[in-house]
């Protein structure tokens, strides 16, 4: 719990006080997410490729919800840690308790080389926000091995690698043609 500021009203009377409650708990990761997390610690991104439709799930779910078939270790595939920015936005941070961002920051979708797997809500590093563009080639910036953490990986993670990857850095390669991606959002 965190006591926070009181906010005086127009007539200077205090009618509300912020009082943040937090409950910390750890849930066991299901085996496929556990393996995803362990591989992240090793510096590898893995997914499951559905044996029926061929789509790649990152992180693996242990099933393809579209085909309603199970996926197993046999369907595991190691994914590239290089890719292309296929969508992004520049976020003006809203200030709330626990928000440390103060300046506009980028969140991008990165489609990994060699398939359909896309990582959403990714941070880009070493590039000014006004130079980010669709088609930009990027590579993952892994934290040093001993500094990686999977504490924030949950069974519901949307492809997050936070704690292991600091963000994605432009590779300097020529852009992939933006027309290939504009208008074709995926999530």
């Amino acid at each position: 719990m965190t006591p926070a500021a009181t906010e005086p009203d127009d007539d200077n009377s205090v009618k509300m006080m912020d009082y943040f409650m937090q409950l910390e708990y750890r849930e066991p990761l299901c085996p496929v997410v556990r393996r995803y997390a362990d591989q992240l610690l090793e510096g590898r991104l893995i997914g499951h490729q559905c044996p029926s439709c061929g789509l790649v799930y990152l992180p693996p779910r242990g099933y393809c919800p579209i085909c309603v078939v199970e996926t197993t270790d046999a369907d595991e595939t190691v994914l590239s840690d290089r890719g292309t920015v296929t969508n992004y936005t520049v976020v003006t941070p809203v200030q709330y308790y626990g928000q440390h961002e103060t300046e506009p920051f980028v969140r991008a979708s990165v489609t990994l080389d060699g398939g359909n797997a896309t990582m959403n809500l990714q941070d880009l590093v070493d590039v000014p926000v006004d130079e980010v563009r669709v088609g930009m080639r990027v590579a993952a910036v892994w934290k040093p091995k001993g500094e990686r953490s999977v504490a924030d990986i949950s069974n519901r993670s949307w492809g997050s690698a936070e704690g292991c990857i600091d963000g994605w850095r432009p590779t300097g390669e020529p852009d992939a043609p933006a027309e290939q991606f504009l208008g074709k959002a995926t999530f």
């Binding site: 941070p93 809203v94 709330y96 308790y97 928000q99 961002e101 920051f105």
Partner: peptide, 10 residues
């Protein structure tokens, strides 16, 4: 929405 974490984007 941010689950109390930094970097919330709404």
């Amino acid at each position: 929405l941010a689950g109390g974490r930094s970097g919330g984007m709404g």
